[in-house]
Design a protein around this nucleic acid. Structure first.
Lengths: 119, 119
DNA sequence: ACCCTATTTCTACGATCGTGGAAAGACCGT
DNA sequence: ACGGTCTTTCCACGATCGTAGAAATAGGGT
């Protein structure tokens, strides 16, 4: 992942209203959520939310699709994967021994066949 | 990880000069790097870099320690782990099937006993 | 054609951010 | 005590951001 793309994604998430909106949209995968619903659920004016959603879209973290009158927003999960990967790769670049604890953090999460899921 | 702490960390990294500085300091783990070196290597005035380093410090991503005349900056790797974990947890909250590909992204990296290290 | 709903675009305002000159603060050597 | 090095703090400037009112756009129902 290129540095400038990572910065756009980081900057997009580094804002309370947008982070909330992103998390909300994530929670509604893979159905998505209309823009008005996002604004209503987070109690933010529609036009304000619209510009925030535009920022998240420009950063590639969400995408939109028109569905008659509504515009449905969905999360771009690959982008989160890229971003987390960027952080980890960045951190252990050239130093594998540093990123081992990072991997350990994620591995117990979502292992198939495990009864409880820590994730 | 609390949301506001994550936002501070994200905002701190969402700036070119700071991201560069952070990556540079990461690269010099665990020895650390004096503030002046960071400024010199990235070709940024010392006082400008000083304020950026202060932001990264407030976000908990780096820490400083005086060593005679120099002030050595070191990365707080745990914080990166927390941040990456926050992103992943955020993403697959309640939906384990979504975070599986994320884990797959990290797992091949740094597995012990592997000859080549993709990380 | 008209109205209603859903959403965006335009615009402007105050607030915060990034930058770097100038000065001040630590620390060491002599 | 003094000069030199390393770093931070203070300050001010322009630039970007977050917000939301008002108007414009897109689509569906009658």
């Amino acid at each position: 992942m290129e540095s400038t793309l990572a910065i756009d994604a980081l900057a997009a998430l580094a804002q309370p209203t947008r982070l909330d909106a992103f998390r909300l949209i994530m929670k509604h995968e893979p159905n998505g959520l209309p823009a008005g619903e996002v604004a209503r659920l987070l109690d933010v004016p529609q036009n304000t939310m619209s510009s925030h959603l535009a920022v998240l879209t420009r950063a590639g973290l969400i995408s939109s699709e028109r569905h008659s009158r509504s515009i449905i927003y969905r999360a771009e999960i690959d982008k989160v994967r890229e971003l987390a990967s960027f952080l980890v790769t960045d951190c252990c670049g050239g130093r594998p021994e540093l990123c081992e604890p990072l991997v350990a953090e994620f591995t117990p999460c979502c292992v198939p066949g495990e009864g409880k899921n820590a994730c």
